[in-house]
Design a protein around this nucleic acid. Structure first.
Length: 624
DNA sequence: CTAGGGTTAG
């Protein structure tokens, strides 16, 4: 829209006082605001402090503004008063320029302009934008006391927030305790403080003591539990919230969806989807990508695609990333690459994460040519500097197809030190192709860089095992034992009727354990009839004696979960299981056969990808 | 006359 089109009708003459200001709200470009500004100077309205401050506000904080213009205006005003200074301060925060904000504050004091409580709330916010906020923040606190604003509720709330960001719980608490009439915002900030400190107990106590709770209070609790992986408690809070009558907002739903994604409880995710539809909530970029991510993490690609289609017209890079990554982790590599092409055609600029997702798809799908082209495009067309994750994908891409020279080339030319992820990818590639020489080198590096991860030792010992170096297998096992590294217990869960059932190896705690083990026996029989032989090729060095007694391959947690699924659902229903570790070789081959024998789709999400078993095959094409 | 706390992708 041009400025000419904005000209007021003749009856609204530009010389009346309000007109330039009302025009300001219509401005869509900086140039238009500049013209309003010029007019205000000509008609001397600029000397009206109210008018000048509204113009400053437009410049400083609107999306169409310009911080530079705001600062120029400030210096051109004859005797600017506190409000205008505050506006420009706020503008600096919006543009993430905290140092400038402090300089402005100095100038303000030099010009003998008295700061008010707004000034200090803005300064405290500036502190939280600094990398090392503690020292300067405490100075601000002193100034607050000096100017007598320490009893203002907003200032107190911001102070608590500031101390919370610095992790200074004692100081935060001091402000909180000394204040007499804090509002729900301050209570929420205090909750956040405990959440940041991962102090779940105090958090809960405070929450229960709150005189008033709002949607933010509930959101803080839910997202805390999601962040620390206490999914059951997160869902319990969500239920309590609904009982309280507080309506969930978009933030609540994004958090809950993240919880659902972690637990893989598809039914709960579907409930959220229908909740959004029922309440006519806007599927914006955030909620859209959270929904896509949820469906993808539950192994339900149809759902993810459905939501993706619902988000048409409102797709950010995040939305595309969620869908590309969903296709990739669910074994649809080629489709993921194709969707990236569509993203480009749609004119959405890919970011570094987009390329992580696409390159990941290429490596898992063995798409060497596509991956190479994509990597070059990232650098040359989009001018994105690859980070270690991108180089990791490239090493994986070449390693998986046995192009070790190319993988080495990446390692040699990249501008940083290789990380554990890279060594792991290379070591497992070497294991598949029996490249024992490079495998040993990579495995040793891996063990050094990820000494707390039991899989490092397993991989290296596997390399030694295939080259027959049994003494070294022993040495690695001993080292692992000496360092006290343990395999976390494997566990698998399955959601049925809204309840998540969790199983560990040889689990005997489930109420229907008798039926489950009968089913397991039957599964074993039918596998044998189909000519199946247990795959014990994996070196099980991470299993101690005690565990060995209870651990038969047939009683792995994923098999228990599947058996429970078989006896609890009607024939042909898809079985969805989430496992915390990687699925083992034996379970993988059994599942393929079981999907055929029982005519069931079985979807297992392991620690890094999905296995869709159907008709005797797996979507990962035995690459995982 | 005008303003002010939290969530998010492998």
């Amino acid at each position: 829209m041009s400025f000419a089109q904005l000209s007021p009708p003749p009856s609204l003459s530009l010389s009346t006082k309000q007109t330039p200001l009302s025009l300001l709200t219509l401005c869509t470009h900086l140039q238009e605001a500049n013209q309003v500004h010029a007019h205000m100077i000509k008609s001397s309205q600029i000397s009206h402090t109210y008018s000048a401050s509204r113009l400053a506000e437009f410049y400083a904080v609107s999306d169409r503004g310009s911080l530079e213009c705001a600062e120029k205006l400030l210096s051109s005003v004859h005797e600017p008063y506190t409000f205008i200074w505050n506006i420009v301060l706020r503008g600096n925060l919006k543009h993430k320029r905290p140092f400038n904000a402090f300089q402005l504050f100095d100038q303000m004091l030099n010009n003998s302009v008295p700061p008010d409580h707004f000034t200090f709330t803005f300064l405290l916010k500036a502190c939280t934008q600094l990398s090392d906020p503690e020292r300067i923040g405490k100075q601000v606190h002193c100034q607050i006391i000096k100017y007598g604003h320490e009893r203002n509720v907003y200032v107190e709330t911001k102070l608590i927030h500031f101390y919370a960001v610095c992790g200074l719980l004692v100081d935060a608490h001091k402000v909180f305790d000394e204040s007499t009439d804090l509002g729900v915002v301050a209570w929420n900030t205090m909750l956040e403080c405990y959440a940041n400190n991962r102090d779940g107990e105090s958090l809960h106590l405070l929450f229960d003591r709150m005189p008033v709770r709002d949607v933010v209070s509930w959101n803080t609790m839910i997202s805390f539990y999601v962040q620390v992986g206490r999914i059951k408690e997160a869902m319990e809070m969500f239920r309590r919230m609904q009982g309280s009558g507080e309506k969930p907002n978009v933030v609540t739903l994004v958090s809950v969806l993240s919880a659902v994604s972690q637990s893989g409880a598809l039914a709960q995710g579907k409930w959220i989807h229908s909740y959004i539809k029922r309440n006519g909530l806007d599927l914006d970029e955030n909620l859209g990508s959270a929904m896509i991510n949820m469906y993808a993490k539950c192994g339900c690609l149809e759902g993810a695609i459905e939501v993706f289609n619902e988000t048409k017209n409102k797709r950010s890079a995040d939305t595309w990333n969620a869908m590309i990554s969903g296709l990739s982790t669910n074994g649809q590599s080629r489709k993921a690459v194709e969707l990236f092409g569509e993203m480009e055609s749609a004119g959405v600029k890919p970011n570094a994460i987009t390329f992580s997702c696409v390159l990941n798809a290429c490596s898992h799908g063995g798409l060497v040519e596509e991956g190479t082209v994509c990597f070059r495009k990232m650098i040359e067309v989009y001018e994105i500097k690859p980070d270690i994750a991108h180089y990791g994908c490239m090493v994986d891409l070449f390693g998986r197809v046995g192009l070790f020279e190319k993988a080495k080339e990446i390692l040699k030319t990249m501008p940083m030190q290789p990380d554990a992820v890279m060594w792991r990818a290379l070591t497992s590639a070497c294991r598949i192709y029996k490249n024992t020489e490079m495998g040993e080198q990579a495995g040793l590096q891996l063990m050094e860089q990820a000494p707390d991860d039991h899989t490092s030792y397993v991989l290296l010992s596997n390399i030694y095992a295939i080259s027959g170096k049994w003494d070294r297998v022993h040495k690695v096992r001993k080292m692992m034992w000496e360092r006290g590294v343990k395999k976390p217990p494997g566990s698998s869960s399955i959601e049925l009727g809204g309840i998540v059932h969790e199983f560990v190896v040889g689990d005997a705690t489930h109420v229907r354990k008798k039926e489950i083990y009968m089913m397991l026996d039957e599964m074993g029989e039918r596998l044998k009839l189909a000519g199946y032989e247990p795959d014990t090729n994996e070196v099980l060095l991470d299993i101690d004696e005690e565990e060995m007694k209870h651990t038969s391959l047939a009683h792995h947690s994923e098999k228990l979960a599947v058996a429970f699924g078989f006896i609890s659902t009607i024939p042909r229903t898809t079985i969805r299981v989430v496992k915390n570790l990687r699925v083992c070789n034996d379970c993988h081959s059994s599942m393929k056969l079981l999907s055929k024998i029982y005519s069931r789709d079985i979807i297992i999400r392991d620690s890094n990808r999905f296995h869709h078993f159907r008709e005797g095959l797996c979507s990962c094409m035995d690459f995982w």
